[in-house]
Simulated scan of single mutants.
Amino acid sequence: MKAQVKWIGDEMFAGISESGHTIVLDANAGSLAPSPLENVLISLGGCSSVDVISILKKTRQNVSDCKVEISGTRVDSVPKLFSDIHLHFVISGTNVEEKHVKKAISLSADKYCSVALMLNKSVNITHDFSIIEC
């Protein structure tokens, strides 16, 4: 897998994936696009959500929506690395069983999500969830 990052002006950069997709990054406190560290949170949430939905589908849970709210805490010293990241999954559906959601999140965190597995070597990553019946 390869990627490229190209400076496009001021503190703006274009990230171009090997598959030809482009994302804009803004190092100026994310005023025009996500900052690189915001993108790390988004990538973690995306990776985890893919796993959770896949696992819930395999366990035949009737899921209609999945949202993950991600909060990161950074250290005060430079470089301002993440010390803690928390993911709160909000799963909507009909008769979705708590045990299956808990297992799906655990499998993602401990076995499948490449982003989480890379980050958790230096970041404390926690999870919880709520289920909305609809």
Rank of each mutant, 00 (worst) to 15 (best):
I105W: 08
E11Y: 13
N39A: 02
S130N: 08
E18G: 14
L41E: 00
S83V: 05
R60M: 12
H86P: 01
Q4T: 14
S54K: 11
K57L: 13
G9H: 10
L44K: 05
Q61P: 10
E69D: 15
I85C: 03
H127D: 10
D26Y: 05
K80D: 00
I55F: 10
L87M: 14
T59A: 09
V96A: 03
D10A: 13
R60H: 14
N120D: 13
D76R: 09
K99A: 13
V96S: 05
H88W: 04
K57D: 11
L87V: 04
S114V: 11
L107I: 14
K111G: 09
S108R: 06
I91T: 04
S106M: 09
V90L: 09
S48K: 03
S106Y: 12
C47A: 03
V68S: 08
Q61A: 08
V40E: 00
Q4I: 12
P79E: 07
C134R: 15
L56C: 05
L119S: 07
A3T: 15
T59R: 12
D76F: 05
F13C: 10
I53C: 04
E97I: 11
G30Y: 01
D128F: 10
K2A: 06
S43H: 01
I53A: 07
Q4G: 03
D110W: 11
G72F: 10
L107N: 09
T73D: 12
I23M: 06
K102H: 08
T94P: 03
H100G: 03
G46H: 01
I16P: 01
S31D: 07
K111Y: 15
S83K: 11
S77H: 13
I42S: 00
V5R: 05
